[in-house]
Design a protein around this nucleic acid. Structure first.
Lengths: 161, 161
DNA sequence: CCATTTTCTTGAATCAATCAAGTCCTGGCC
DNA sequence: GGCCAGGACTTGATTGATTCAAGAAAATGG
């Protein structure tokens, strides 16, 4: 299911040592499950919790689903990963943090892609009327169809990614 | 819990007959549960399913939760109501449809307010790079704190509305 | 008023996520 | 290098929102 060798050939990515350092710098204890989850999120951007559990178990061994949930929460809180929840989908996670990028979601197959914001670093923060709210983030989700689904709509609705 | 008389004094809103006409025009059969749900969504914008069930039962009588779920789906599909799902919240519904407005969500109490888009009728539809997707909608959610929560953060986290 | 088709009721099931209690392990200390 | 305390992981149950399924009831067209 996962060919990490092939993947390693294709991209330059954080090593296990990098992940360890990231955890330490975030004041998080370094554990195998955490390294495995961090690796999985980097390897499979926008994966949902279940896929991450699968990936973690594939290249590390049995880990409880609860541990993965705990780790994902810890990493999100620490800012090492970002949690996204497109309507109609379970929570998904990505390792690209710190910039304010947005997402395109395919209505048909559910696949998600990143989109840089055109308006600068903290974009869109200007609502026409903020209703008195103190706004700190503008989240943008573009909905449509991915190239594959435009060409040939798949069997079922939503999912996968 | 619901003072419809007071509410009626304050706003001019669709009457029961209007709702009936809306349903017929959408090729939906006119039933008491549907009228009740449609009324509730108009009366309580951004309410979640559970609140809608409560409102429907309060001014109509016992209705199964399943019926409300079914009706909300039918109304959403027909475009008579719009379903929104802010991260961390259950599905919510609003009757303001047809325009592309956005939402501000309070991180503390969960309350939602409408925000008109500054950029025109079909705003934000221009992603910096659409990744080959065919985009048909841009959904914007502003996150922050509502005026009340800025002044005095409430007891618990998230919810209400 | 009847037939057809849709909608509603009842009750169970699913899925994602969380809670809780106990065991295990990491990191700091001697 | 071993010990301790608090944090992290395992196991198992539970919640909450939503959906599935089968039959009863009601709405529309004739």
């Amino acid at each position: 299911m996962i060919d990490s060798r092939k993947w390693a050939r294709l991209r330059t990515v954080p090593t296990d040592t990098d992940f360890e350092r990231m955890l330490r710098e975030a004041d998080l204890r370094v554990t195998r499950p955490r390294l495995a989850v961090l690796t999985a999120v980097h390897r499979y951007p926008h994966a949902d919790t279940d896929s991450i559990i699968g990936a973690v178990r594939a290249d590390f061994g049995e880990v409880s689903h609860q541990a993965v949930y705990d780790v994902l929460r810890a990493l999100s809180t620490a800012g090492l990963v970002r949690r996204i929840e497109p309507a109609g989908s379970a929570a998904r996670y990505e390792a690209r943090v710190g910039d304010n990028h947005h997402h395109v979601v395919c209505r048909s197959c559910g696949i998600i892609a990143d989109v840089d914001c055109a308006v600068g670093d903290t974009p869109c923060l200007t609502a026409s009327d903020d209703r008195g709210f103190t706004i700190d983030e503008a989240e943008v989700v573009y909905w449509g169809l991915c190239p594959e689904c435009v060409a040939a709509p798949p069997r079922a609705t939503a999912a996968g990614g």
